Simulated assay, not measured.
Amino acid sequence: MSEISVRELTEDQWETYRRVRLAALEESPQAFVATYAEEEAYDEAFWRTRMRRSRRLLAEVDGRSVGVASLGEAGPDSPTVAELFGLWVAPDFRGAGVASQLVQAGADTARREGRTHLAYWVNTDNGPAVAFASGFGFRPTDSRRPMRVASEDGDEEIAMVLALGQDRGMPTL
């Protein structure tokens, strides 16, 4: 396989982000709060605002968009913690290191911004996702919340945290 590259998209690249985001919503609708129909209808102003709210990381192989992740604020009570969210990899590229490259790029960006930790919310029943995050170095916290996507089983998410420097303590989320 060719080399995986990850780059941060600018506001002016909103159409690229829109295209890969819609592909993610179409392929894995159960993984996201929004629906394809909702987001497909949004106009340019919406997408530009979204680009300014959080950093959008795009993974590419040979110029083809193969994955995406977003990096934002964990919350007002956690100013030293960045949050990784919206992670998606195209099915043909799963297991090829794309997710790891996206997470590493998110961690590197957060570290450069002076963040001490990176948070990542994972469905407690999603063994592969928990294993992936654990293998990357994320550690589970006591923070739980109901799944933000539709779930009939009352599933919940767990905040997993990656220390980005010397501070190995668990931040409040």
Rank of each mutant, 00 (worst) to 15 (best):
E26K: 00
E156D: 14
A74E: 15
A99I: 03
D62T: 09
F136R: 13
N126L: 10
G86V: 13
R64P: 04
R55T: 09
Y36T: 02
R21Q: 05
D77C: 09
T80S: 15
E44Q: 05
W14E: 05
V103M: 04
F46W: 10
M51H: 06
E3G: 03
M1D: 11
E11M: 03
V20E: 07
T80K: 15
F46D: 11
T124P: 00
R111D: 08
G169F: 08
T116Y: 08
E38N: 08
L87R: 11
P140H: 04
A105W: 02
S2Q: 13
P146G: 12
E39R: 04
T80M: 10
G135H: 15
L164W: 12
L118C: 13
D125P: 04
P91C: 02
S143F: 13
S28F: 14
M1G: 11
E156V: 14
S28N: 14
A82Q: 07
G95P: 10
Q104G: 01
D92M: 05
T35I: 05
A31R: 01
Q166Y: 06
Q101Y: 07
E60N: 06
A31Y: 03
A69H: 07
A45C: 00
G72E: 11
V66T: 08
F85N: 10
F32Q: 04
A107V: 06
A159K: 07
M51T: 04
V89S: 03
P146F: 08
H117G: 15
R115I: 01
T124Y: 04
T141N: 01
S100G: 15
T35R: 01
P29N: 06
A24E: 05
L25V: 05
S28E: 14
E40M: 02
Q101H: 13
T124F: 01
